Amino acid sequence: MSKGIFITATGTDVGKTYVTSLIVKLLRQSGMNAGYYKAALSGADVVDGELIPGDCKVVADTAGLAVRPQDMVSYIYKTAVSPHLAAQIEKQPIETDVILADFAKAKQQYDYITVEGSGGIICPLRLDEKELMLIDIIKLLKLDIIVVASAELGTINSVVLTIDYARSKEILVKGIILNKYDNGNFLHRDNKKSIERLTGLPVITCVANNDENLTLDAKILCECYKEV
Results as ranks from 00 to 15, higher is better:
79 T>I: 14
79 T>V: 15
80 A>D: 09
80 A>K: 02
81 V>I: 14
83 P>N: 11
85 L>S: 12
87 A>N: 07
88 Q>R: 14
88 Q>V: 05
88 Q>G: 13
90 E>F: 01
90 E>M: 06
90 E>Q: 06
91 K>H: 14
92 Q>N: 14
92 Q>Y: 07
93 P>V: 03
95 E>G: 07
96 T>W: 06
98 V>L: 12
98 V>N: 14
99 I>E: 06
100 L>Q: 15
100 L>R: 15
102 D>N: 15
102 D>W: 04
102 D>P: 05
102 D>A: 09
103 F>T: 11
104 A>I: 06
105 K>A: 15
105 K>D: 15
105 K>C: 10
105 K>N: 13
106 A>D: 07
106 A>V: 12
109 Q>Y: 09
109 Q>M: 12
109 Q>W: 08
109 Q>C: 09
110 Y>N: 09
114 T>I: 13
114 T>D: 10
114 T>F: 02
116 E>N: 04
116 E>T: 06
117 G>K: 03
121 I>F: 14
123 C>G: 08
123 C>H: 10
124 P>C: 07
125 L>N: 09
125 L>H: 11
126 R>P: 04
127 L>A: 14
130 K>P: 00
130 K>L: 12
131 E>K: 10
131 E>M: 08
132 L>G: 01
133 M>P: 00
135 I>V: 10
137 I>R: 01
137 I>L: 08
137 I>Y: 05
138 I>S: 05
138 I>L: 00
139 K>A: 03
141 L>H: 07
143 L>V: 01
144 D>K: 07
144 D>T: 11
145 I>P: 00
146 I>G: 00
146 I>Y: 02
146 I>V: 08
147 V>A: 04
148 V>T: 08
149 A>P: 02
150 S>Y: 00
152 E>V: 03
153 L>D: 01
155 T>C: 15
155 T>R: 11
156 I>C: 03
157 N>M: 02
158 S>F: 09
158 S>E: 10
158 S>I: 10
161 L>P: 02
163 I>S: 12
166 A>S: 14
167 R>N: 10
167 R>C: 05
168 S>Q: 13
169 K>L: 10
169 K>S: 09
170 E>R: 11
171 I>C: 06
174 K>Q: 14
175 G>C: 03
175 G>N: 03
175 G>W: 03
175 G>M: 05
179 N>I: 01
180 K>Q: 11
181 Y>S: 01
182 D>A: 11
182 D>F: 00
183 N>Y: 08
184 G>I: 02
184 G>Y: 10
185 N>G: 04
186 F>I: 09
187 L>V: 13
188 H>E: 05
190 D>Y: 13
193 K>D: 14
196 E>V: 00
197 R>K: 14
197 R>G: 06
197 R>T: 12
198 L>H: 11
198 L>S: 01
203 V>H: 00
203 V>K: 05
204 I>Y: 05
205 T>F: 01
207 V>H: 01
207 V>G: 03
207 V>I: 10
208 A>R: 13
208 A>P: 09
210 N>Y: 15
